[in-house]
Design a protein around this nucleic acid. Structure first.
Lengths: 227, 227
DNA sequence: ATCTTCGATGATTAGAATGCGCATGCGACT
DNA sequence: AGTCGCATGCGCATTCTAATCATCGAAGAT
């Protein structure tokens, strides 16, 4: 994940770079508004951290120019201007977050994480395990590129298993979270097993390596290697 | 734009609702964590404003449960817990912003705007799917170049489906967003189905490949490939 | 240790019940 | 006339139930 810091104070810039690099981000620094605008618009990073008081070109100007140009990279404003008026201005100019100096570094990092998390919306929308792929809102499931026809229940079941891939899920969990039956699940009732079997027939049987394994006495897991 | 406020203190909730409604948002309020979780997960709004100290179920729990369930709606935490530790926790649990009480209302609104801005793709006047084309302001729909005569309802319905192409939309969503009937949709009431059928007759039946598919148990999708 | 036995757990199958989606038609309103 | 809301009824995919079959693994005997 690439972060661009636009900040003229050298001390602050260095501290930020060091701290963010420790978090495994790839950091570059622009020392002026002009330079920052150029870098952000020619090769947009995944996030911009923007100081407001800059030589040559004010931070607000840089932000406005970027948005004007259609650059939609997330921007976090980091400044000592702390009035409500300043914050509202910054946010309304197109910033995604506004943090006031002095600040706590852990909070900055948390906010950076939050912004970068949002940047990849499709990663939330599509779940994957090996060559099995689920696009959630479209309700489409495919394996080896071939689309599979699942019923509503089967889809919900697989959705739950994919979200908990690697974890063993019990029948009680499935009864509660997929079937929404709070209490009255009985061992006599093998609805779950039936649907698991049906799901297996569609997502596993036609293909080589099985993904849906049963853990005797406990429940089921979705994972790659055989157990 | 729909906002859900999860907040038990009645005074605060009322003030928020009033202020946000003045900004043209459609606001609903949940008085407990339990209720908030239910509302947010069954019918996700465009934004959630979440208090942390709640009866029944703590705000952090609600957030974690929502993310766990794959609900990716933007969440702004609004609380009086103001330590750095609290903020980092909240953001890392999946919140998108964190604002501390007492707060300046204009700042809240600016942050709300910033969050909602991200969710929206910029508006376009002509929507397209395969050879189906809709010019929105002109209210003209055509396929294979031939203009189609749609009624007002049919147009609104198709408009909604086109804006959400590729996503499965439920009857509840249609009842709310196309019919604006907040609550009194019943499964017995098949108005939606009738209009979907009529729409199909006009945009799909005369042509080769169908675009409007039904997803049994869930709703309808507009998309190209057959499923 | 290895083999055998047996109970418990999971898998499979088929048929029954459910509920969903769709067509149709009528009345009301514009 | 055209459009929309609403109700009824049918057909069928989906889901559930229930009964049978397969498999696993621990315990005991050899």
């Amino acid at each position: 994940m690439r972060i661009l810091i636009i900040e003229d104070e050298e001390k602050m810039a260095k501290a930020l770079r060091k701290g963010l690099e420790a978090e495994e981000y790839s950091v570059s620094v622009a020392q002026s508004g002009e330079e920052g605008f150029f870098l952000a618009s020619t090769d947009p990073p995944d996030l911009v951290i923007l100081d407001l008081m800059l030589p040559q070109r004010d931070g607000m100007e840089v932000l406005a120019a970027l948005r004007q140009k259609g650059v939609s990279v997330p921007v976090l404003i980091l400044t000592s201007k702390d009035t409500v008026r300043d914050r509202v201005c910054g946010l309304d100019a197109g910033a995604d977050d506004y943090l006031v100096k002095p600040f706590a570094f852990p909070e900055l990092v948390a906010r950076v994480r939050a912004l970068l998390r949002r940047g990849r919306p499709e990663s939330v929308d599509t779940l994957r395990l090996a060559d099995l792929e689920m696009r959630v809102t479209a309700r489409v499931v495919s394996r080896e590129g071939r689309e599979l026809a699942l019923t509503a229940r089967e889809f919900d079941l697989l959705h739950y298993l994919l979200r908990n891939q690697g974890r063993v899920v019990s029948r009680e969990m499935l009864a509660r979270d997929v079937w929404q039956e709070t209490a009255r699940y009985t061992p006599l009732d093998n609805v779950i097993d039936v649907h698991v079997a049906n799901l297996r027939r569609k997502i596993d049987e036609p293909f080589g390596n099985k993904l849906l394994h049963t853990v005797r006495g406990v429940g089921f897991v979705l994972r790659e290697e055989a157990s």
